[in-house]
Each structure stands twice: as structure tokens, then as C-alpha cells.
Computed example of a mutant assay.
Amino acid sequence: MVFAGGISGVGIWLLRRLDSAARARVGAEEAPEAAAVVEPLDGEELVVDGISKAFGGNQALKDVSLVAEPGQVTALIGPNGSGKTTLLNMISGFYKADSGEVRLGGDSIQGKNPADVARAGISRTFQTPNVPEKLTVLEVVESGYYAAEKASILSSVLRLPKYWRVKRAATAEADRVLSLVGLDAQRHELADSLPLGNRRLLEVARCLVSSPRVLLLDEVASGLDEDELEVLERLIVRLRDAGQTVVLVEHNFQLVLRLADDIYVLAQGQVMAHGDSHEIEHNERVRAEYLGIHQEIEVEEGSDV
């Protein structure tokens, strides 16, 4: 099994053995039990101002604007192909806008690459969870910590004191967020062996470990069972109440109505409706085009209809 991954597999195995021995010497084989608490969060205002994007002849987004405030859940809903994920990709720096601007806390992040956007404080999940192979649940979450703080390559290779300080901080924070998403019991399991629902919660934990200013959740409830959905819903409420800026892209309309403070509805790359949960739930155009609910027409007796 040691040689299954070739030379790199041997290297990983040796590093883990050395790390295990080092932790044992300093009495840190297991981190102290982390309390599942949400500390006050410094969310930032996210502004999307007149963003447009075309791919060839396909106008994916046209003059889209939205504002997501700290301490609120801002939901983005709409049928498949309406541009929801494209907009998240624009915010995250994966695509460049044809026009318009994205601002975080008043500062433009337009044109920044995804790594710089992440360092600026925007973290996101993806529709398909991207979980590396051969890493434990704890290691995957720890990897998200290094977007905020990291040791140098030399310090990491030689296992210098700076490496161990960052490592201990990453482990403590990873344990805390794993408790928040209910995965603390799986911390030493291989991440790619988790079922889909747990992999989605694992991605949320990896986002949270870097203490982002804005959290983008892309279809994160898809594939969750009832218990997992309850954990996710409670967590989003706690993050909102702690001051987080949350942008939720979601098809589960009832979940959106329960969680969202502000809702934007996209259709064919444009904002077709905007309002609070009550306004969107009773918007006839949303009910017809997004939910497929059409108002019944009363027909008088004797009419020719």
C-alpha cells in the first residue's frame, strides 16, 4: 500500500510518519476538542454593478446588478441556464466581465484572478464538490486555512517552528468548523470516500476555515438528506447572525424562502425580479416562469372559453 502512489506516495507516507512522530513528542497527536461555536464575523458588502458577459453569440449575463450585505442571506435563484453559476464565476475571478464591475467592501476586485479574489476574502463552493484524493477530511479542511496564513516552502520542508505554529492553528480551526458542519467524527477518514452530501458539507467547512468576508454557496443543498439539510440550514442562520455575508444559489425554493433576507431572480441572464421572501413567493411572473405555477382563470358558466 505504501508504494501504491509511486514516489509521491512514498513521500506522503514518510512525511505523515515523521509528522506523527513529531506530534507525539510534543504531545499534540490529537488537537483539543473544538467547541462548535461561530465567532463574530466581519462580513463585507458585495456589489455587482451592471455585469455583462457573452460567450460567442450567447449572452450569458446582461447588465446584472445585485448587492449582498453583511449579516444577511442574499439568494440568487432562477431556472437552469439563467446565468446563476456564471455570475458566481464572474465574482470569483474565473471569468472576465465584458462590462460592469464587482466591488468588495468598496474596493474593486474586477480583473483579479481567483487566488487573489480568495485572498481578498471571497470563498465559494461548487456545484460538483472538488475533493482531492488521498487526503483525510481534516487535511482537506486545513488546506483552506492556508489561503489566509501559510508557512514558507523552506519552513514546511524542514518542519521549522513557523510551520508547526501554522499547522497547530490550522488544525484547531479545522476541528472547529468540522464540528459546525457535523463532520468531526469523520476527521481522519479519506475525504474522497465520503458520500455526496458529506462532501458538500466538507466544502463548506473548507470555505469557512479561512474566515471569509463573503461566502458563496452554489447549490450546496443538492444531494443532502433531511438531517444534513437541517445541519446546513442551522449553520447558514448562525453565520448570518454572526455577521457573515452569504450569497446562496439554490433550487430548493422552500429553503430559500426560509433563509433569504433578499432574493434576486435571474431569467435569460437578466434580473427579472428582486425582493424579500414574501414578495418573491407571491410574484406571478416568478411563479409562472420559475416555479411553473400558473394562476387559474375562472370561467363563467355559459362562456365560450
Rank of each mutant, 00 (worst) to 15 (best):
D19I: 06
V177S: 12
L232I: 14
R23C: 04
S155A: 13
E226W: 10
A288E: 13
L216Y: 04
I122S: 01
L202I: 07
L201H: 03
L239W: 05
E296R: 01
A205W: 05
I109Q: 00
K84A: 11
W164P: 15
L15W: 03
Q244D: 05
P132W: 02
G50H: 10
N89P: 14
R165F: 02
L18D: 03
G6M: 05
S222E: 07
V204H: 06
G6Q: 05
L257A: 10
D49E: 14
T86V: 13
E189V: 13
L235D: 03
W13L: 07
M90G: 07
L104N: 00
S108Y: 04
S211N: 14
Q244A: 15
R200M: 12
T171N: 11
E228N: 11
T74I: 07
R200A: 06
D63W: 00
L158V: 11
V249M: 09
D304W: 07
L215A: 11
R103Q: 10
E101G: 01
L104V: 01
A205C: 11
Q110L: 09
E29M: 10
Y95M: 07
V247C: 06
A118Q: 01
H282K: 08
Q110F: 00
E301N: 12
F253M: 15
R238M: 09
E219P: 10
L229Y: 02
A221M: 13
V166S: 11
V67G: 13
L46G: 00
R25C: 06
L135P: 00
L180F: 12
F55W: 07
G11Q: 12
L291S: 09
V26P: 01
H274Y: 08
L66P: 15
L66K: 06
Y163C: 09
V181E: 01
Y146T: 12
S155K: 02
L178I: 12
H278K: 08
A170P: 02
D227G: 11
V157T: 11
A148I: 05
Y145M: 08
S20G: 15
R165K: 15
R258H: 06
S20R: 10
G27P: 04
E33P: 11
R176T: 08
R176A: 10
G121D: 06
R168Y: 05
V141P: 04
A22H: 11
G83T: 14
I77N: 08
D241A: 12
T125W: 08
L158A: 07
R168W: 06
S152D: 07
L229S: 14
D192C: 11
V286D: 04
H282L: 07
I297K: 11
A185P: 07
I109K: 00
L178T: 09
R23S: 10
Q270C: 14
G121Y: 04
L216G: 00
V131H: 08
L259R: 01
G9R: 09
V73Q: 02
R16A: 07
L259E: 04
I122M: 01
V37Y: 08
P79F: 00
E39Y: 01
